[in-house]
């Protein structure tokens, strides 16, 4: 089994893209409907490869993928119905 780390590990890479911290934002899984902070995702690929995959801690579906190239960041939020930001 591959090792994973917390969604908290996304905080640095995401703060290069967003003006607010998104790890405290509540996401809802398109697979099972579980809602929770992105900090609770299971993140794979943090120690190798060009990007990371964040999976739902409830059903293991892919919530997001974040890939960096030398010039761009690609954020794929395929598995998130919504992100709820506290204002």
């Amino acid at each position: 089994m591959l090792d994973y780390v917390d969604g908290s590990s996304l905080a640095g890479p995401m703060r290069e893209l967003f003006a607010v911290d998104v790890t405290a934002v509540e996401g809802r899984c398109a697979g099972c409907g579980l809602a929770g902070p992105l900090a609770n995702l299971r993140v794979y690929g943090h120690d190798h490869g060009p990007g990371v995959v964040g999976r739902c801690p409830g059903c293991d579906e892919v919530i997001l993928r974040l890939v960096r190239t030398p010039t761009d960041a690609w954020l794929d939020l395929r598995g998130a119905v919504s992100l709820r930001f506290s204002m």
Binding site: G12, T23, N40
Partner: peptide
């Protein structure tokens, strides 16, 4: 260094 980051824990 890049930070501080993380607003959940």
């Amino acid at each position: 260094l890049r930070g501080p980051v993380g607003g959940w824990f």
